[in-house]
Nucleic acid binder design. Sequence first.
RNA 1: GGCGCCAUAGCCAAGUGGUAAGGCAUGGGUCUGCAAAACCCUGAUCCCCAGUUCAAAUCUGGGUGGCGCCUCCA
Length: 466
Amino acid sequence: MKIYNTLTRKKEEFVPIEEGRVKMYSCGPTVYNYFHIGNARPFIMFDLLRRYLEYRGYDVRFVQNFTDIDDKVIRKANEENTTYDKIAERYISEYFTDAQGLKIRPATVHPKATDNIDEIIDIVKTLVDKGYAYEADGDVYFRTKAFKEYGKLSHQPLEDLEAGARIDVREHKEDPMDFALWKAAKPDEPYWESPWGKGRPGWHIECSAMARRYLGETIDIHSGGVDLCFPHHENEIAQSECANGKPFAHYWMHNAFLNIDNQKMSKSLGNFFTVRDAAGAYGYEAIRFFMISAHYRTPLNYSRDSLEQALASLARINAALVNLRFLSKNGTDGEMSRKEKESKDAFESYKKRFCDAMDDDLNSADAVSVIFELVREVNTLCAEKDVTRKYAKEGLAIMTELCNVLAIGQTEEENMLDSEIDTLIEQRQQARKAKDFKEADRIRDELKTQGIILEDTPQGVKWSRA
RNA sequence: GGCGCCAUAGCCAAGUGGUAAGGCAUGGGUCUGCAAAACCCUGAUCCCCAGUUCAAAUCUGGGUGGCGCCUCCA
């Protein structure tokens, strides 16, 4: 598999540190609100990476943190007259609700910053001892000039960064580019005891600490949105590599931004959507499909149109799955025809093309197109009056396998049989036999209002949930 | 000012040297009690200019347009 590495700005063959195992870390949400549609992109895309790596047989250890202490969490707590941990707890729970809807699997570990204060303090202490950090009035800062490789991820020399930087007025910093590892507690703020007095961790340090604790000093893949590249990831590298004296991550992956109607999402423009809002309008499945339909490194535009198209496209895949499930039970008995055998033999080539696409820096858009070609293939054969159960089963197996890697398409459980529906379908069949089409249509309409779509086929009545 | 990304049919979106995947939408057809689904047919010389090459959407240079980071916003 090839991965585009921000560090080298090249697509590189992926070689894990330890054969067959992958250690990956992805920056998670700051839990002070529902996560927005832009946040969903890295969550979905790196969940996809993890699923694909597992599909290819890797044992993946995936860590995604929750930033549960920072200015925004504290502000929200103050607004609601509650404590930061209550806010964090609530939105962590909401994160899992949305994540589950989007079929984002829980990470191997979801550590919280506040559960790792000891580890954080330990790293900061090491950095101070080694001369990479200094204390000033209860704050501790990283001395960027001490790390000569600073800027290697964003590919900018320190001087250029400095030239563009807004000057931070904190006078006790040695250099404007220095960043906080530990912040002295302000009055009425939550704090932890540390060698530098009461305070709390800076934002960047938590990721270095949690990555080391749960994955080790050097990890395979670190991922996140492009905007985190600088300064967040640059700072993580500085902290981790100075503290551990080893490379931090071999591969850095960054997803491009999601725009809303071709503009950056922002509260002031009034185009700020949470996943919860979007799911209410189009459903979680459409959002996931929409994200996966584009390569993760190209900017993606969220619009009403895009989501409606995603919904329609997904319906085609779901229809094929429902059809295959139906025919694997209601098809004809016996051996596959020659045409069916040939088609079945071609399934491997679809699978290969699917994997080739995914191997090419997670080209999910191309992988999806392979699924659609497969849909056409099986649909064509399934349109035959004497399609065999055997063939339908084979088709269902390959379709399900590929769809499961991307976590798209309705699963069988999501379209389970229901005896009441069966009864109504039977009644309708009786009516049709008696040429009472009025009654037949009435039953079909009635079921439709309940979201059940009936289709008459040569093999019998097929139904699915809208 | 520094660094970087994007520009492909009505829309979404792959494709990084050999004359353009896939999806949505549109129109026509087949099938069907009707319907739905499905299948077949239907559409682009790839922002512009110049260059390299037998050959470029794909490489180089120059434009134009849109966007991002350099401000703890994914």
